[in-house]
Design a protein around this nucleic acid. Structure first.
Length: 305
RNA sequence: GGUGGGGUAGCGAAGUGGCUAAACGCGGUGGACUGUAAAUCCACUCUCUCCGAGUUCGGUGGUUCGAAUCCACUCCCCACCA
């Protein structure tokens, strides 16, 4: 199998900085795996870097418009194509991001088809169904899935129903984490306390960097900020509309970001086989050295299979 | 100094004699997740040897079979009057 390096970790841990150094050291390119950075126009609030003016090539950033539908299948295809072409150039692809599902879909055996999900249709078709009714419907179509998905999780119940109707029971898909590349998956870590304080500080920094102006600009362009699910956009729009005061909004955004980081960590722990690397914020060279040690070891190993 | 209001679990806040280890919200923690994933959803959150037991509702002492809830004294906070 061909080798791929992944750098992941919770939001605000410092993936970007580490990945740039690694990309330079090993003369390779970065494939973005942060779902929020796919969309054009969401910059400050998604901690997007000025990748166009960097010496390191970044792929899969700004690939769709704000309100454009996007499927994980597209991401899987595009990322794998890029991986292939990097391999052809004898480069070790470097996937960097915090969207666990997206990373797994690329490096793992995820069977996705081309059908796009039609949320509006799903919701309208079953509009009159209560959560419980829907869940019963799912039990008829895919009983095993119904056991695993809570009735209140309407979105996932709907998805499972529509998949079952189209002939694929979600519950029959492989749960394993079989990989299609030889992967070294770094998970950058730090204490919860330090991470949360970084999240809080980063929020202030984003405001200084013009996040509010970005949101105002999007509003002026006519976008419905309520539809932007990335943390902070709806909240800041509410502030601009005078619905919430700034303190409330700040606390809410920071809280949501902390909660998100926690969910990410749960995913890394239970859905990925990672190599943890503790961040040494006082001396990032230490962290970098630890990464290098692991990478060098990894590159020397002959690939199995 | 006087009068009134108040002190409840990490925070906010219900509860005004037994059904209360104490509603609810927030925060936090753990978890699920193959298609909006910075999404969506679930569980737990006084302590323990967790079926069960033990300590709680500013403090102390009472009344009572039984108190966060009633009484007395006391400490602290807020408002107004001096």
């Amino acid at each position: 199998m061909k080798k791929v390096i992944v750098i992941t970790g919770p939001t605000a841990i410092g993936k970007t900085e580490m990945s740039l150094q690694i990309a330079r050291l090993y003369n390779t390119e970065i494939i973005n795996a942060d779902a929020s950075q796919f969309r054009k126009g969401l910059n400050v609030g998604t901690a997007k870097i000025d990748y166009k003016n960097l010496d390191v090539v970044h792929h899969l950033i700004d690939i769709i418009d704000i309100e454009e539908d996007f499927s994980i299948k597209d991401f899987q295809d595009r990322a794998r194509d890029i991986i292939t072409s990097l391999h052809n150039e004898n480069k070790i692809p470097l996937i960097v991001g915090g969207s666990g599902l997206y990373i797994n879909s690329v490096i793992g055996k995820y069977e996705l088809d081309d059908s796009k999900r039609d949320y509006d249709f799903e919701e309208k078709f079953y509009e009159s169904y209560s959560n419980e009714d829907l869940h019963k419907e799912l039990a008829l179509l895919d009983f095993d899935s119904s056991l695993n998905i809570h009735p209140n999780n309407r979105r996932r119940v709907l998805r499972a129903i529509s998949k079952a109707k189209s002939g694929t029971k979600i519950s029959t898909l492989k749960k394993g984490q079989e990989l299609i590349y030889d992967c070294l998956i770094f998970e950058l870590t730090t204490s919860r306390e330090v991470l949360y304080s970084r999240i809080n500080k980063r929020f202030s920094q984003m405001i200084e960097d013009g996040w509010l102006e970005e949101v105002r600009d999007l509003k002026n362009k006519g976008y419905d900020l309520e539809k932007i699910k990335d943390i902070g956009y709806t909240e800041l729009a509410n502030y601009l509309d005078g619905v919430l005061d700034f303190y409330e909004v700040s606390e809410l955004i920071k809280k949501k970001t902390r909660n998100y980081a926690k969910r990410q960590i749960t995913w890394f722990k239970n859905k990925m086989n990672t190599t943890p690397i503790e961040m040494d914020y006082d001396n990032l060279d230490n962290t970098l050295n630890n990464l290098k040690l692991e990478i060098n070891k990894f590159l020397k190993e002959t690939s199995q299979i």
